[in-house]
Design a protein around this nucleic acid. Structure first.
Lengths: 216, 216
DNA sequence: AATCTATGACTGAGCGCTCGTTCAAGCCCT
DNA sequence: AGGGCTTGAACGAGCGCTCAGTCATAGATT
């Protein structure tokens, strides 16, 4: 069966169980459910969002909701996965350019930080919500998080020793990759301070200087 | 793990209401309650910890618990406040030294990161739990968080322009202060990766180089 | 074309249970 | 005696999830 990969929201077909036979329907309905759920989770948080609210917001009965998703925790996982996919897609697009050395790194940082700005709500949500995932899915989510960080680590590694870059130890590269990842997310989870004191442009510029060691 | 010195917790007397007349008793009992609660929250999280569990763990009846604390949310605030006080105390001690320039900054960073290591559970807890505070107390907690960050900003500011330090713009200093704060906490909230790949010593050394721009 | 039948998506009242909170009654000290 | 402190049974709102039943559709049969 030749399925066309809709780059938007893939949504697992088999990973998370469902009662419904028609897989096309599952994909479509789940997308609607996930979209509504993200909004509700962002607005009210995981616990204060009831399954009834989710059902209403996506125009299903609760019963019907539970045909497409087997528990609230399942739904939470689908939400997390979708957000990660969105971030990863956006960041990977930034790797396409052809410039070299620090400029290339700076461009990737800029792109990633812009994504963090656009998806600030979602990133904050991930921080708040990962703790409620059952173990097996928490592991999966952390792996997805690592995948994104690895994009930066790879970008750094491919630069090490070239274009006026010093040769760097693997551990250093690894940690710097995580730093980039977290400093982007910081724009979201410290927005209570950041958005009062910086524009996203200022933030990107200063943080880029900071990461590239141009400050001290 | 938590080799935290049993730092006696001050505990607000008036800020959070109580039914009990004897203030001495309130202070003493609340400390016991808060200590037990922190342990339970760390182990089970806020929602899965019931008030009955808290009462049992601190050797009170539920009724008695509610004489000393007027709601679970109140208790949550007391917990957050106590943790912040502990961190702040420890970091402020690091300011006592007499060395100058980058060495002084490096020492403050080392001290702070060590605190983040010792209190990793508590820092993670703060990240998970702030979202459940009612508005007025969330503001208070964020202010406490800012107070800690300001310690770094002040340390940076007092260095700006001296001892081979460049003169730096206020926004830059502000953001770098937040970076230090967050990179310390990152040791806690990314421990699922960090503690597998670094010792705290390695972490401190690399991050210090990173912050001071010695990497690229 | 008309009728029957099988399928499976959809519905929502209600079950079973948890949890934060209260309060009437009792205990203890002065 | 009376105020301060403790107790734990009882309350009731709220939640995730179930399941017996409805109904639209489409293929089979006449």
């Amino acid at each position: 069966m030749g399925k066309i990969k809709k780059a938007m929201t893939p949504v697992a077909e088999t990973e998370v169980p469902t009662q419904i036979k028609n897989q096309e329907l599952v994909r479509e309905r789940r997308r609607k459910i996930i979209d509504s759920t993200v909004k509700l989770f962002v607005e009210h948080g995981y616990h204060k969002t009831t399954t009834r609210m989710i059902a209403k917001a996506s125009n299903f009965s609760i019963g019907s909701l539970y045909e497409y998703v087997s528990s609230k925790e399942d739904l939470l996982y689908l939400v997390c996965k979708t957000i990660h996919e969105e971030v990863q897609d956006a960041v990977e697009k930034a790797l396409a350019g052809t410039d070299k050395g620090k400029e290339r790194l700076a461009r990737v940082i800029r792109q990633y930080f812009s994504v963090c700005d656009n998806m600030a709500d979602h990133i904050l949500l991930m921080y708040q919500v990962t703790q409620f995932l059952p173990g097996k899915w928490k592991d999966q989510v952390l792996e997805n998080e690592l995948n994104i960080t690895n994009i930066f680590i790879n970008a750094l590694t491919s630069l090490s020793g070239k274009n006026a870059f010093p040769v760097l130890d693997g551990k250093v590269l690894n940690l710097v990759g995580h730093n980039i990842s977290v400093l982007g997310q910081m724009w979201a989870f410290r927005r209570w301070h950041m958005q009062k004191n910086f524009t996203i442009e200022e933030y990107i510029n200063i943080q880029t200087d900071f990461i590239l060691g141009r400050i001290f």
